[in-house]
Design a protein around this nucleic acid. Structure first.
Lengths: 208, 208
DNA sequence: CCAAAAGTGTTAGGAGTACACCCATGG
DNA sequence: CCATGGGTGTACTCCTAACACTTTTGG
């Protein structure tokens, strides 16, 4: 009989780079190898609910962006037997994150997607699939805002886009394009992190 | 324990309209209702292989375009118990089709996607998902050629696009755009179906 | 006053869209 | 010769991309 798991790719921004949460396996197979967090789907929960549960167990957060990616079902992807996995992608703003102590996993940490460690199972394929999907949807949807705090500067928004896409963007074109969409609403507040002119804060405005 | 099925949406063109193959259920639940053809995933086959197998059982064809769409896993989507289904989409040129006699299903026939019958389970959702995906990918990929015979006229190609998108397209713009892509190669042959000037034939040319 | 980051317009090229007439063939 | 479908070009709009200097603050 087939067993079904969900694996959840949890992305966040740290230090201007896109990171993914991985856990170190405490049991065979692939003991000590890094893996995408996940687990079996329970009898009375939907796939989406299972993914939310895994996400919450791992990070303690809820109310996040979550999207199903793809079902991976090669017969020998898990040496223990027939396991099909449905991969999900979650995006979390780093200000909402505190990694939960005492998880199932022996160890959990953030890895930059530009230089991940060797991964267990077919998880490298799954990670590649997720990054492609994330890049593809960034321009045509509002999912990117999920990686930012509720109030953000345009420089932060641009840095996020650059981190996801892995390339630099033109500041003036970026700002014009963003402001034309009416998806962000300027606030009266400003913020000055380092020395320099304080930046205006914006918030995401789904309505318009 | 969870069971896993694959459901395969098989699309083709008939009489200038996009059609989908549905089967009439011979057993409860939803006895007599129309449904997307599918079946359980076997122990030693991948999801893709299971979808190919179902497709071949239903239509007798192989070597077709097949793409995984989405995994549907609401706990009560099947009243008999926990069944997760992975939906696939297949595209077949009508010249390659002959519906296989003596399938599992009591009856199988083509339905126009613009006016499908009431469907079993959550299959109406799945059909809607598939059509959205097909429309979305038509412009940015070469999958549409799978719905045509190896040699086709530009009018046939345009009719196919119109059938999938559900709207009329401008002839001159369509032809210019297609020819600019270099994806089609003109042949020396022409064809005259009805009265009128014979149309030049083309073939899909993946190489360039 | 100097360093550091924020903020701001114009131009050129390419993509998409609207639109009307002549051509080749069969009957 | 006429009905039928095949085949062609131009102009306008909009989006994208390239590009450099001024402004505001903290130290």
């Amino acid at each position: 009989m087939v067993r079904v798991t969900v694996d959840v790719l949890i992305f966040t921004l740290r230090e201007r780079a896109l990171h993914v949460l991985l856990v170190k396996r405490g049991i065979p197979p692939f003991l000590g190898r890094w893996a995408i967090p996940g687990g079996f789907v329970h009898e009375r929960e939907s796939l989406d609910e299972a993914a939310l549960r895994e996400l919450c167990e791992e990070t303690g957060v809820s109310q996040v962006y979550l999207e199903q990616l793809y079902a991976f079902g090669a017969p020998k992807r898990d040496p223990r037997g027939r396991v099909i996995t449905v991969a999900y992608m979650a995006l979390i703003a780093s200000d909402r994150l505190y990694l939960r102590a005492g998880t199932d996993a022996a160890e959990a940490r953030w890895w930059p997607v530009s230089a991940p460690p060797p991964l267990a199972f077919d998880h490298a394929d799954i990670l590649g699939f997720a990054i492609d999907r994330l890049r593809g949807k960034l321009a045509h949807s509002t999912l990117g805002f999920q990686l930012l705090a509720p109030r953000f500067t345009l420089a932060e928004l641009q840095t996020m886009h650059e981190a996801v896409l892995g390339r630099r963007l033109d500041k003036r074109n970026f700002r014009r394009r963003i402001l034309e969409t009416k998806l962000v609403k300027p606030l009266r507040q400003h913020r000055s992190d380092a020395g320099g002119r304080p930046a205006r804060l914006y918030r995401f405005d789904r309505a318009t």
